[in-house]
């Protein structure tokens, strides 16, 4: 008989159970994805448990990184500054402590941008590493618009009132108008408007003075002053101008034109002029004695 010792075709109980276990979805998922992850994680953990190996690994990693960073393609060899005056360029080179050549990975452009923007004379700065290994810095300088005298110093301010540079003497920039007084830098715009509105008075203006950090006084030559109100200063100045044009007011012996009450312009005469006025009003002329 050929079939006497035929193997039993039935699965053993163990293989039957294993087969069923393998067909269990959760177990299958675990064996397919959970198990490899655990094995890899365990192997990595076992390898890294040794401090020497960990250090060696970090060292080799940093070496690889260094070798890539030091490739000539990434080296920055010089710095080009556009749009800055010579002095500003020198200032920028001073504040940026970069030793060329340097890898572009080591340049902290954000930090450098912050440093350059922190300079008073810089309105706007763009930094980028140009192909060819050039650190390109494009700067827009602040335009000085006015001279500010405060605390016995002279400062150059731009149209927004931001400090541009100190000034040695007023004579260095006679073309710019002058303002004075604490807090005047916050109202540079108004001051410039007043200058623009001054018209024929402009050559006579010596400067604008901020009084009590609230209003302007226009100081003219020959010790004359125009006291302007807090609000509507430009209108008040235009009225004074109109009076001057009509009556030639400021050519007379007037010390100050007080416009602080806009509805009631007040004149302060000089001492002799006031005397004359008084005499001309009294009939005998010597009552005052």
């Amino acid at each position: 008989m050929p079939h006497l010792n035929r193997r039993d075709p039935a699965p053993s109980r163990l293989s039957y159970r294993l087969h069923r276990l393998w067909l269990t979805p959760l177990f299958r998922f675990f064996m397919r994805s959970g198990m490899p992850v655990i094995v890899v994680a365990l192997a990595a953990w076992a390898y890294l448990a040794n401090e020497e190996r960990r250090d060696a690994l970090m060292l080799s990693l940093s070496e690889i990184r260094q070798s890539i960073e030091d490739r000539p393609e990434f080296m920055v060899k010089l710095m080009a500054i556009d749009g800055a005056s010579t002095e500003l360029g020198q200032d920028i080179r001073e504040v940026l402590p970069v030793d060329f050549p340097v890898s572009s990975f080591d340049l902290d452009l954000d930090e450098m941008h912050r440093t350059i923007s922190g300079l008073d004379a810089v309105a706007k700065a763009d930094l980028r590493v140009r192909p060819g290994g050039i650190l390109q810095i494009t700067v827009t300088e602040r335009e000085p618009a006015i001279v500010w005298r405060v605390h016995d110093q002279l400062e150059l301010l731009d149209a927004t009132g931001h400090r541009v540079a100190p000034l040695e003497t007023r004579g260095d920039r006679p073309d710019l108008p002058l303002i004075a007084g604490i807090g005047a830098d916050r109202y540079v715009g108004e001051a410039l408007e007043l200058y623009a509105a001054a018209g024929p008075l402009q050559p006579r203006i010596r400067g604008l003075m901020r009084v009590g950090e609230r209003r302007w006084t226009v100081v003219l030559d020959q010790n004359q002053m125009i006291l302007l109100p807090e609000k509507g200063a430009v209108t008040a100045l235009l009225r004074v101008e109109a009076l001057h044009t009509a009556e030639d007011m400021l050519a007379r012996d007037v010390r100050a034109v007080d416009m602080r009450q806009p509805g009631r312009p007040t004149l302060r005469l000089s001492q002799p002029a006031a005397q004359d006025l008084l005499y001309s009003r009294t009939p005998d002329g010597d009552t005052q004695g």
Binding site: D8, P9, A10, P11, R13, Y16, H19, R20, L23, T24
Partner: peptide, 18 residues
């Protein structure tokens, strides 16, 4: 029992589910 196991395992294998 063995015969049932054979049939069930065969069917399970074809179905791919337990």
């Amino acid at each position: 029992e063995r015969a049932i196991r054979t049939a069930v395992q065969q069917a399970q294998k074809m179905a791919g589910v337990r």
